[in-house]
Design a protein around this nucleic acid. Structure first.
Lengths: 202, 202
DNA sequence: ACATGTGAAGCGCTTCACAGCG
DNA sequence: CGCTGTGAAGCGCTTCACATGT
């Protein structure tokens, strides 16, 4: 299959990667096992993995090491900048999961003079005015917005202007960006509200 | 329409609520306007809102105040507990968005003796051993896990045992729970990986 | 005139069922 | 015999197009 990988599949690949993390000691895994861990249908797993090419062995399953490499290669990785050195920005900068997945945090930026110069996980907090230069010089390709909501749109504009095409937005606001920019929103209270909805009717 | 509201619609309702937040000063909003803000199709907005009953006025649009009340009532709200008082737990406890949406943080818990007793946004960090009693006495219905990945499954077990049926999991691990428990996962590096995937092919 | 509400068509994803292969 | 790979069926969501209401 050399056709484009469905969006839904792309969103499951990181989940499979997490499951593979927890399968140390074994060499092979079947679609059934992986499906049980990820909470999906076995046929789904097989179809998803078939988009990467055919790496399974019939009658046996998938070579874990090989599979991990394939999935990681497909997802790729790159340099990111965090804008907003508040609680959430600090949490992200301290989060080892990024480095484990091959992402490098190229810088963390803030407006607050009291925060500038302090260190978070070996990174020095830099002034927001240094953002554009850093993006350019360090090859940043993804911006992570963890500012208060009032500042988020302005930061998104600056990121776009500086050539960043992918934004992960944690600020509780809806960003307006050009079509060429890919924004993923993580709204902490959105997730809570969806849980809450299903709570009242089951 | 009194049929069950589609899952996809439920996940968009919080988005519409965010958009309504930004429409102060006006009294009416059309499906077209709301759609542009939320980044979806106008027909989608109308169909979504029609599941709440018919609150639009033909030729005019939707009464913003009325619409907000309807959506909020549909989504509901309740008491939550945060388990893990690290960077991310603190960020969530400090996040005003929860209170704005009617969620009350009933407690924040940790194992670390150095953290227990400290204050985060007026909440005293409590020992993990007090979790079950607090859930029971304070009527906690949703648990938010912000522990390291190794501790997450154990915490999920204790939450389930204590009667919690909804879990928001920020720990980078896949939880195994009974079918009766609703888990939503927010994996920070998952989101980055999806962005990264589309970066390499467009 | 203008915007909602909705049957019906369109589209993509999920699941089934089984052929294919080790 | 067991598990993968995949065409085809099934299913739910999105979008269209227009009737409906003010």
């Amino acid at each position: 299959m050399k056709d484009p990988i469905p969006r839904a599949t792309v969103e499951r690949l990181p989940v499979y990667l997490r499951c593979l993390d927890e399968l140390s000691g074994t060499e092979w895994v079947s679609s059934g096992r992986l499906a049980a861990m990820a909470g999906v249908n076995p046929a789904q797993v097989r179809k998803d993995l078939s988009y990467l090419g055919s790496y399974g062995v019939r009658g046996v399953g998938y070579d874990i090491e090989n599979l991990r490499n394939q999935v990681e290669r497909e997802l790729g990785s790159c340099r990111v900048a965090i804008i907003g050195a508040g609680n959430l920005g600090a949490a992200l900068a301290n989060f080892d999961g990024f480095t484990e997945r091959g992402f490098a945090i190229a810088g963390i930026f803030d407006l607050d003079p009291e925060k500038i110069g302090t260190r978070i996980n070996r990174l020095r907090v830099e002034p927001l005015s240094a953002l554009e230069e850093a993006i350019d010089e360090r090859g940043v390709r993804i911006g992570i917005i963890t500012t208060p909501p009032e500042a988020a749109q302005e930061v998104a504009n600056r990121l776009t202007e500086a050539g960043v095409r992918s934004i992960l937005n944690f600020a509780p606001t809806i960003l307006q960006v050009a079509d060429s920019v890919d924004v993923r929103r993580v709204d902490l209270s959105t997730e809570l509200q969806v849980l809450s909805f299903y709570l009242t009717r089951s």
